[in-house]
């Protein structure tokens, strides 16, 4: 079921799912769209429904704390995947959570983690390339493997520029103890499982040279 983005009411796309025979709804919305559509899906009874003799499941492929907060109680029990979570116990994650919390009085979201890590990685790549010139920075990142950023050994694959790392399966917390305690880690899925053949999506990467600036 395709939906437009930026809508506020997704109900007309949810009713056809009710009797469609599907047993999983993969709600591939992000940000405000997910904040709007997930509670609506839950209100339509999709979280507590049975289909084909099994429990009907709603899956959110890109879950984040901010979205979970906006969707409120609708996230309880909903399963999804996420990049990172402040409750990870590796030393890098613990240190980041502590210093972020000291600065802002709240644990970092996965988006905050992404921004921080990407900034470090870019700085590192520029240093290794010895230039800001994008084609050189790109080369420095292609096939680059690193660790200590909270996702285990991580690879920027050269073939398709995708980031290969472990991914978290998270679930909306049914009994949150604070406003930040919205998602629980269910499982950490290792990089060997998440890595896929680059040929599946394929495609051209395009030129590395920046477009000429207008004079």
């Amino acid at each position: 079921m395709r939906t437009p983005l930026g809508s506020s009411d997704y109900s007309q796309y949810l009713t056809p799912i009710l009797n469609s025979g599907a047993d999983v709804l993969i709600l591939n919305h992000y940000g405000l769209d997910m904040v709007n559509s997930l509670p609506q899906a839950v209100q339509f009874g999709l979280r507590d429904r049975e289909a084909n003799g099994k429990r009907f499941e709603i899956i959110v492929p890109m879950f984040s704390e901010l979205m979970a907060k906006g969707a409120g109680e609708a996230v309880r029990g909903i399963i999804g995947t996420s990049n990172w979570h402040w409750n990870l116990q590796d030393p890098g994650s613990v240190a980041f959570t502590k210093s972020f919390g000291a600065e802002y009085g709240a644990p970092p979201s996965q988006a905050a983690h992404t921004c921080y890590v990407q900034t470090l990685l870019y700085a590192d790549a520029v240093e290794r390339a010895g230039t800001f010139y994008p084609p050189e920075v790109i080369k420095a990142l292609e096939g680059h493997e690193f660790d200590g950023m909270g996702n285990g050994k991580t690879l920027y694959r050269a073939e398709d520029h995708q980031c290969m790392k472990s991914v978290l399966v998270v679930q909306g917390n049914s009994a949150p103890t604070s406003e930040f305690d919205v998602l629980n880690i269910v499982q950490e899925v290792g990089r060997d499982t998440t890595t896929y053949d680059p040929a599946i999506f394929g495609g051209e990467l395009g030129p590395a040279e920046p477009a000429p600036l207008c004079a």
Binding site: L32, V35, P39, Q43, F44, G45, K69, G72
Partner: peptide
């Protein structure tokens, strides 16, 4: 700027 969820009364949730 973020949405603030407003829960409905517990008896009136669901379908």
């Amino acid at each position: 700027p973020n949405p603030i969820p407003q829960p409905m009364p517990t008896d009136l949730r669901g379908a």
